[in-house]
C-alpha cells in the first residue's frame, strides 16, 4: 500500500469546501468545547453529519477539543457504532441475538450477502446498502429480525429479506428516473 497522505489532504480540502457540513461541524464543536466527557457524544453527532467519521475530521475534532488524536481514534475504533468508511443510504442491521440465532439468522445473512454481493460490514458499490450486524435489537419475539434505518422487520425468511432489499433498490431506481425526467 502506498502513502495515503495526499488522499487525506485532498479529502480534508474537499470536506472544508463543503460549507454546509463544515459549518455544522464548527457549531457542534463550539457547543461542546470545554465540556468534559463529551467525546463519545461529539463523535456520534459528527457521524450524523457525515454518515461516518472521516479521518481529517477526527483530526480536527482532536485539535478543537484539545484531545490527543490517538485518543479520538481509540474511542472511534472501540465502539461498534462508529464507522471509518462511508455508509450506504440504507444501513441494514442484522440481529445476532440468541432468539434470532436459534430461528435461523445465519441463513438471512447468507441470503443478504448473496443478494447484495457484499460481505458483512461492507457497502454496495452503488452506495445504497451497508450490511452490518447488531448484537441484539431487542425485538426477540419477532425473531429473526433486521433493522433498516431504524425500522425493524420481523419474522423474516431468507426470501422475505431478499424481497425487502429488492423493493428498496427498485424504489431508489424509480426515484432516480423521476429525478432524471424533471
Amino acid at each position: 500500500m502506498g502513502c495515503t497522505c495526499d488522499d487525506q489532504q485532498n479529502l480534508a480540502q474537499s470536506l472544508q469546501n463543503d460549507t454546509n457540513t463544515w459549518t455544522k461541524l464548527q457549531d457542534l464543536l463550539e457547543r461542546f468545547r470545554g465540556q468534559r466527557g463529551s467525546l463519545v457524544t461529539v463523535l456520534q453527532q459528527v457521524q450524523d453529519i457525515y454518515g461516518y467519521l472521516p479521518r481529517p475530521v477526527m483530526q480536527h475534532v482532536a485539535e478543537v477539543l484539545r484531545i490527543k488524536p490517538a485518543k479520538v481514534y481509540g474511542v472511534a475504533t472501540f465502539y461498534k457504532q462508529f464507522r471509518l468508511t462511508p455508509m450506504g443510504k440504507y444501513v441494514i442491521l442484522l440481529c445476532q441475538g440468541t432468539a434470532c440465532h436459534v430461528n435461523g439468522s445465519e441463513r438471512l445473512a447468507e441470503a443478504l450477502c448473496e443478494e447484495l454481493q457484499i460481505s458483512e460490514g461492507e457497502t454496495t458499490t452503488d452506495g445504497l446498502f451497508t450490511l452490518s450486524s447488531a448484537a441484539c435489537l431487542g425485538c426477540c419475539s419477532l425473531a429473526p429480525v433486521m433493522m433498516i434505518n431504524g425500522l425493524a422487520y420481523g419474522q423474516l425468511t431468507p426470501q422475505k429479506a431478499r424481497q425487502i432489499v429488492k423493493e428498496l433498490a427498485e424504489q431508489e431506481k424509480g426515484s432516480l428516473q423521476e429525478g432524471g425526467l424533471q
Partner: peptide, 21 residues
C-alpha cells in the same frame, strides 16, 4: 451508548460516560 456490550459493566459504563473507551 455507542455499541459496546462491555459497557454494561459498571466501571466500563462510567468510563464511557466520561467519553473514554
Amino acid at each position: 451508548g455507542a455499541g459496546a456490550f462491555v459497557c454494561g459493566e459498571e466501571t466500563a459504563l462510567m468510563a464511557s460516560i466520561e467519553g473514554r473507551r
